[in-house]
């Protein structure tokens, strides 16, 4: 593995950590400004823009060294003829860590995109094909976990909305449903639609997973980097993305859950499909 690459990555991480601290301070200032209803809102906008710029640069600059490390790890693995168990383990965990770091970067980029995403086109959504294509992308995970998906769009299949946004929302909710299934019982996830009234439809994602204690975690659920479990699963970005996209494109999210029984996430969408 290239020493330069590791050093470069460590430097970047150091910058990231220190910038993160200043970000937090700026965030605090921001919050105070908003709370005090400061008329100088351009300051708030400026801080916000800076924050975004910084995150873009940080995520972009970290990608290359991580990709290099990953490549060198592959080479190292191929070159080592008979590595000891410890070396094998170390390589495995290094690869895992690199993959995790890359996932964080990917999700951070998606979260940023979701914040500003307002340019999706209003099209006719066909739930059947949209969900089919989402599930196809998750085929290996679904098989590995032995999840039974039941999709019922007989009540409502076609409606106008923003396809990329809805894909991202559904993808995140379905991934979460799979992630938080109860390993002790066969996982079942139902995705279905219903028309609530002339102006509103509801898409439900219902699982029989571990469930969430909503009294304790309702606030945490939609925040950035907030997790409702401490087991290290999930990045804490998905729900933030969903919330932002629904804010941008119109719609709300309702959550029903019971620990040990499962959760139902209901996406309530306006049938007009107009931006919020």
């Amino acid at each position: 593995m290239s020493k330069d690459n590791v050093e470069h990555l460590l430097e970047k991480l150091e910058v990231l950590v220190s910038e993160n601290q200043s970000l937090r301070l700026e965030n605090e200032t921001l919050r105070t400004l908003v709370e005090d209803n400061d008329p100088d809102s351009s300051k708030v906008i400026g801080y916000n823009n800076e924050l975004e710029q910084f995150t873009y640069v940080a995520t972009h600059d970290l990608k290359t060294p991580l990709a290099n490390i990953s490549g060198y790890l592959d080479l190292l693995e191929m070159d080592l003829e008979e590595p000891s168990g410890d070396v094998k383990d170390s390589i495995k965990w290094l690869k895992y860590s690199v993959r995790e770091a890359m996932n964080v970067i990917k999700e951070l980029t998606s979260a940023l995109k979701a914040r500003n995403d307002k340019d999706d086109l209003l099209v006719t959504i066909n739930m059947d094909s949209l969900v089919e294509s989402i599930l196809s992308g998750m085929r290996s995970t679904i098989k590995k976990k032995g999840v039974l998906f039941i999709c019922d769009f007989t009540e409502f299949d076609n409606f106008p909305y923003y396809k990329s946004a809805l894909r991202s929302i559904l993808q995140n909710l379905i991934s979460n449903a799979i992630l938080y299934l109860d390993p002790e019982k066969p996982g079942v996830i139902k995705v279905h639609t219903e028309k609530l009234d002339e102006q509103t439809i509801c898409i439900s994602i219902e699982d029989n997973g571990v469930g969430i204690d909503l009294e304790k975690n309702r606030e945490k659920l939609l925040g950035l980097f907030k997790r409702v479990t401490n087991d290290g699963s999930g990045s804490g970005i998905g729900m933030y993305i969903i919330n932002k996209l629904l804010e941008n494109y119109g719609g709300t999210l309702e959550i029903e859950s019971e620990v040990g029984v499962g959760s139902t996430f209901k996406i309530i969408l306006p049938l007009t499909g107009t931006n919020a």
């Binding site: 059947d128 089919e132 599930l135 679904i142 998906f149 039941i150 999709c151 769009f153 007989t154």
Partner: peptide, 11 residues
């Protein structure tokens, strides 16, 4: 050809 995942209901 895309093999079906789970159960799909149509009407």
């Amino acid at each position: 050809y895309l093999s079906t995942i789970g159960i799909n209901i149509s009407k």
